[in-house]
Amino acid sequence: MNVPSEQTPTASTLSAGGLPIEEVDCPLCGRDDAEPIAVGEDFEYHTTRDSWRMVRCRRCRLLYLNPRPAPAALDAIYPDDYHAFAFEPARFGLIHAVRTRLEARRLRRWCRGLPKRARVVDVGCGDGFHLQILRRYGRPGWQLEGVDPSPRAVTAARRAGLNIHAGTVEQVGLPPASYDLALMIMTLEHVPDPLASLAAVRRALKPRGRLVVVTDNADTLDFRLFGRRHWGGYHFPRHFHLFDAATLGATAAAAGFGVRRAETAVSPINAMYSLRNLLVDLGAPAKVHDRLTLDSPVGLGLFTVLDALQAARGEGSVLCATLERSGRGRVLRGRFGGAR
């Protein structure tokens, strides 16, 4: 009898599209009992012809992709022109400038109270966009580092003169109890094992260190409207799990973090891409859905306004949580900062 010996055995097989895939248990509670809520394809980058299924754990309510691309498939699903590898001013012009300003404001707030010689690590730093903002707007004494497993991202970030650890945060072995602040901006939904990644970050933080997690919010109007297939936050097949306030709080708690502050923030991306995915799926001409991409100021502007209205109700497109290593924070329930 050939029985895998690990606690949660996952055997990787090949999908019909030729991509290595694996079946997984709930990354939060470990159970394998989930209801499918959405089926979709890679509407954005068309890296595979496979169909993907987002499921919701019946026990802990986490959304996760199952089956999902196996580690050996990651190169295939993150193409060279993946936006996080190459968000360049030359290509994105005005959008780059506006986003830099907005992100700088947020980053400065998260960095409030950091000492002069703080050590900061951006986990899943991509091409180093946020680190460059910190270098430009932060204090000169800060020691800034990044972590990313993608060779393309690492090359781009190093070219910008940043100090990057190449690999996943579990692999790179960050020095323990060394960092004042860690950032995971649009990272947690991509990592294969969120609890393991959070644990690795937690080890690297100083006892009073903080972690800021920013991730897609799966408790929004656009999720409810498009959640069966086209919702932008699915980003098939690259988002392995998706959170709402409750499941993010539970994930943080399971990794030993306390929640110091939690809110939702404005982002046009998921609503805009929901509409774009729908149009792509219906076979609309490219000139129509091209208006709804990361390099379209009109689309981004319009959906920013719409999402601002949602954010005012506590249903902004992204969740922002400041977690503390001490684990003494409150446990999150329900929505972030919502009126309901």
């Binding site: 999908s15 019909a16 599209g17 499918p36 394809e41 012809r49 496979d50 169909s51 993907w52």
Partner: peptide
């Protein structure tokens, strides 16, 4: 259904 195909990683061959 396409949903069953996705569950089995067979979407691309359907």
């Amino acid at each position: 259904t396409n949903r069953l195909a996705a569950a089995l990683g067979m979407g691309a061959e359907c």
